[in-house]
Amino acid sequence: MSNEVKPLLTIDGLCFDFSGQAQANEKPGNQILNQVSLTVRKGEIVCILGASGCGKTTLLNLIAGLLTPSKGSIELNSQKPTKRLGYIFQSDALFPWRTVKDNLLLAADIDGSLDKKTLEQSMLQYLSMFHLSEQILTKYPIQLSGGMRQRVSIIQSLMFDPELLLLDEPFSALDYYTKLKLESEFSQFVKERGTAAILVTHDIEEAVAIGNRALIMNAGTLQKEFLIRSEAAVMERGTSDFAEKYREIWSELKSVVGEIQ
């Protein structure tokens, strides 16, 4: 039924090269993205897999408005995306000089129209949703573990009530068990709130575990799409369904990444 609903994000014929950009350090005319088209619906986690340097981060930066496309269009709710985006990077961008609480309430400093009381309430809700104790609020980021910092980063962007979350290998620096936990907390959140997410990952297992779709990217183009599930549910690791999906994606990815033993 969600197929009938108008997509939340529509990307059409997106092209990009660094020639027009201030920070270009490559010869112009070198296409980084070529005719990328993609739609994302509410409540969906779309995973993007691909070799390093194929343009995944660039795609997220374009959606977030950090870069300007040379061709094509990006529409969020039929409009140019403005503020209602959350972007979570591989390493957190928490301000070390602010306490966790002040980091989480950054939204109040940036958007004066937000009510601080309401923000604090949702902050406490998110803390329990992501299994963080309120005691960390008075701590500084330097005192937290990597997993906690990444959770705080996610909550920080949720405070802006984003419709779309962009995540660039957010769990890749975490140890295996922390990663499993965060993945399930995250997909639970998306399911409950009906938010949408684009998750860049190099981890097929992660894509199969929490993704609705997986897109394989190769040299700046989206090469193939896999449907993993229509509901945001965690697929049990170790089941044959899981293994089957994993194998399908792996065999495609192998041809893209090249010879891997």
Partner: peptide, 21 residues
């Protein structure tokens, strides 16, 4: 650090906010 600036841009902060915060 560029990641702080990137975060502020994504969050739609003004230049004055980036400077101050």
């Amino acid at each position: 650090e560029p990641r702080f600036l990137r975060l502020m841009h994504v969050l739609g902060a003004s230049r004055w906010q980036i400077f101050r915060l």
